[in-house]
Design a protein around this nucleic acid. Structure first.
Lengths: 197, 197
DNA sequence: GTCCGTATACTCGTAGACGAATATCCGGAA
DNA sequence: TTCCGGATATTCGTCTACGAGTATACGGAC
């Protein structure tokens, strides 16, 4: 049941994993994450980055090794992973891998208030979503295949997962749209009437 | 490209949709949402509820109609949906339905750092997840079928969606676990070696 | 009649998330 | 040579999310 983490932000997970490789200063972490394409999953938020690193330090999961001033640039603080930090990382990964947590995707929220729109309009919007989803899947697949020639598959599993999920959403959505279009969705008339009045 | 909402919290969406029905005071909204089973998707956070309603009022999307003191209970402020609020609601739903936004599920984050564990352990954890996922799917399906006899399907689409997604995750995961177990996942030996040293 | 558990109904304080500002360096164009 | 835009790095302040605390009412058990 999802332990309370000292630093709960998922950005912290990325930071810890980046520091596994070697000590870095915050900006460098951001660059590394960006290069690894992590910014696709997790838009890097500058404000959060420094807060998170600070918190990690406060809890002894990372430690500052040096503060270097290079040229006239602002002072950089380089951080390294502590033993506690390494332990926290593996413990956290274990939990995240093994325990499915209920997510609350925005689309689920949207579906739950779909009835506020008349059925015809809702159907149109869903059709639009479906088209976008399909297009994205195709281009993502192409991109993934291309990256796969440079990067071992182990580091692409997340992308394979994302792609699979997008595909699944599209399939489910297509079935729903079909029902709505064919008029076989139960209660369609009542829904319509509710909006005609 | 996802407009900046005056009040961005998804709880606000729930509040607006609850107020479509009739004016209510905050605590009542929470009760209604709970009854409708919305608390499954969105654990109601008391702190946020009052903040959100306050913000909605500040932006003119809802308006206080009366403050009643009933018995010795704390004073209750009843809110109603304004025209602007109604407009915001429909606009928001339209956007949410039509535009897929990149979500960042925790499991994706987990996969992206999976390599920090040795392959055997990771496989075991994934297998555990798979079992949980399958069990949840089954019980959710049963529950859904039962509710479907009381509630029109229109108000259960979110749950159907959630179920479909869980199923899809399980299927994808099963395939991955198979590859890992059979040893056909490319780069397995390198991954193992990395942890043996 | 009084005790107590549960539902009602909010308030408040704090930790955290994030946008935007800040300041310097460097390479190339004009 | 000088100017400018983009990369390097971080700080600051605000706005938000939310947990935990507070206080009363009501109904049933004993």
């Amino acid at each position: 049941m999802a332990k309370r983490r000292k630093v709960g932000n998922l950005l912290a997970l990325a930071v810890l994993s980046a520091l596994m490789e070697r000590p870095m200063h915050p900006y460098e972490m951001a660059s590394v994450l960006r290069e690894r394409g992590k910014d696709r999953d997790m838009k890097i938020k500058w404000g959060s980055l420094y807060t998170v690193v600070g918190n990690l330090e406060k809890h002894g999961l990372v430690a500052a090794t040096q503060s270097v001033r290079q040229g006239g640039r602002p002072e950089r603080t380089v951080y390294r992973l502590t033993d506690a930090g390494h332990a926290e990382l593996t413990d956290w990964v274990r939990e995240l891998l093994a325990t499915p947590e209920p997510e609350q995707p925005r689309f689920a929220a949207a579906l739950s208030v779909m009835a506020t729109l008349p059925p015809a309009e809702a159907t149109g919007l869903l059709r639009e979503r479906l088209a976008t989803l399909r297009a994205e899947s195709t281009s993502d697949e192409r991109a993934l295949a291309e990256t796969a020639q440079q990067v071992p598959r182990l580091f692409l599993v997340e992308d394979e997962y994302a792609l699979a999920m997008r595909r699944a959403e599209a399939d489910w959505l297509a079935a729903l749209v079909d029902e709505l279009t064919a008029g076989t969705f139960p209660g369609l008339d009542g829904w319509q009437r509710f909006h005609t009045v």
